[in-house]
Amino acid sequence: MREDIYQRLIALTEEEEKILNGEENVNKSLYTDNGEFIVDSRKLLQTGELIDIRRHTRFVHFPKHKHNYIEFNYVYKGQLTQNIDDRKITLKQGEFIFLNQYITHEIEASEEEDIIINFIIKPEFFDYIITLLEDESLISKFLLTTLYKDYSEGEYLYFKVADKNYIQELAEKIITELYEPSIMSKATIKLLVGLLLVELVKRSKDIETYSANNYDKLLIIQSFKYIDKYYRNANLFELAKKLNQPHYKISKLIKKHTKMTFKELLQEKKLSKAIELLKLTEYSIVEIIDLVGYENPTYFYKIFKGKYGVTPKEYRGKKLHED
């Protein structure tokens, strides 16, 4: 790591100075506006950004909390001890842990020499990257569930890769790019994170996994993959047949883990695909309606405006104006 960036990492923040001067507890208002301690990405990310990093605040215990984003903890120097769903884990220098947005964890106070980098990442960041990974890899399965915002099981992946030099080099490149952004930084960061995940996939023997319900998760992941691939003509009965399960069982599992019906989940996927086509292509709105699998334009307009508050045409015009 370059010395100037290291000095920025080791320097005391305003929050840390207050803690050292007697402020005993975490100032939750820096992280959330809610009564419940759910760290809000809007407090940590600039508007429109999908990824950023911040050095973890030292000298103070972080009580039990969740996030509304994906968090990667990377131990650049020292160590990090946390309790995740009441499982105590101490990460050593050079190790990573990926936490989804439903995991509950608390973090023990770090010492001055403990430099922990927190990657704050919105799930949408992985829409492209997930296509680079093997379908059956642990990371691919982890990321797939994070892309469905209403999947509600806490999960983590713990990577014991302290001795893997290439992974450490990639982590440093990402940190440097985020601390010194350039005109190509967004594209560079996406590529570097993609490379990091590909390298971590190769180290499956070095991964410790945790999921609240692995059996249910397998069926849910297969359901998500089916919807991702066949969303245009997907239906519950065909999915149940592919999974060799009764349709009512799949329906109940989806409702249990996502708080949505199969129909609502499928609609979310179709609408997100429509948004992608509106932003990234020049297809007409009529063509987009057909591409995402709706036969009734009136119904599509109704549900689109109900979710986004604007018509597809207005949305496209707004995005063009912002860009």
Results as ranks from 00 to 15, higher is better:
Y6K: 02
I10C: 04
T13M: 03
E23P: 01
N34F: 06
I38H: 06
L45P: 08
Q46T: 12
R55G: 06
R58G: 06
F59P: 03
K64D: 14
V75K: 08
V75P: 09
Y76L: 15
Y76M: 13
T81V: 09
T81G: 05
Q82M: 14
R87I: 09
I89E: 09
N100E: 13
Q101W: 03
T104E: 15
H105Y: 14
E106Y: 05
I107C: 02
E111V: 09
D114Y: 13
I121T: 13
K122I: 05
E124N: 08
D127H: 08
I129Q: 00
I130E: 05
I139G: 03
F142A: 02
L143S: 01
E155N: 09
L157C: 06
Y158E: 04
F159I: 01
L170N: 08
I174A: 01
P181W: 06
M184K: 11
K186P: 00
I189T: 12
G194C: 10
L200Y: 03
K202E: 14
A212V: 01
N213C: 07
N214I: 03
D216A: 15
L219I: 12
I221G: 07
S223W: 05
F224M: 12
Y226P: 04
R232E: 02
N235I: 00
L236G: 08
F237A: 11
L239V: 02
K242P: 00
N244F: 13
I254L: 15
H257N: 12
T258D: 05
L271N: 04
S272E: 15
L277W: 01
S284T: 14
I288V: 09
I289E: 05
Y299Q: 06
R316P: 07
K318R: 14
D323C: 04
